[in-house]
């Protein structure tokens, strides 16, 4: 019963973070701020959902045994690591490409242009 509540907490946090990320993508004014919402909230939401899955798998393994639950948990862990790294790197690539495509950020200060013409 305790693990059930733990799973529910992880899933709820993850889904709330994903929802806020989607709202941020719709609401923020330009590409860079949208990337903030997408990267941080999306990655954190998916990590929390993966942790919920791992908690479920561990509880099943403890009550039931059987290596297939261990395999499921291990692969979920691999998926979590892959998601965390690829999301951050993809966001970096997109922001660099957006700057190279000539989209200027809205904002108070912009220190990048002095190196761009090389």
């Amino acid at each position: 019963m305790d693990t059930g509540i733990l799973i529910l907490i992880f899933l709820t946090i993850g889904l709330v973070a994903c929802t806020l990320g989607a709202v941020g993508i719709l609401r923020f004014p330009d590409v860079y701020t949208r990337l903030h919402a997408e990267t941080k909230l999306g990655t954190f939401g998916s990590i929390c959902i993966c942790l919920g899955v791992i908690a479920y798998v561990l509880s099943e393994y403890l009550t039931d045994g059987g290596t297939r639950y261990l395999v499921l948990g291990l692969h979920t862990l691999m998926a979590m690591i892959a998601l965390a790294f690829t999301n951050a790197l993809g966001a970096h690539a997109i922001s660099r490409a957006a700057y190279r495509a000539g989209i200027k950020p809205e904002g108070v200060v912009d220190r990048l242009p002095e190196v761009e013409q090389k």
């Binding site: 990320g21 590409v31 949208r34 990337l35 999306g42 990655t43 998916s46 999301n87 997109i94």
Partner: peptide, 12 residues
Amino acid sequence: VALDAINTFTVC
């Protein structure tokens, strides 16, 4: 950016 977010949600 939207496509990247959709990919993340699809993986979940």
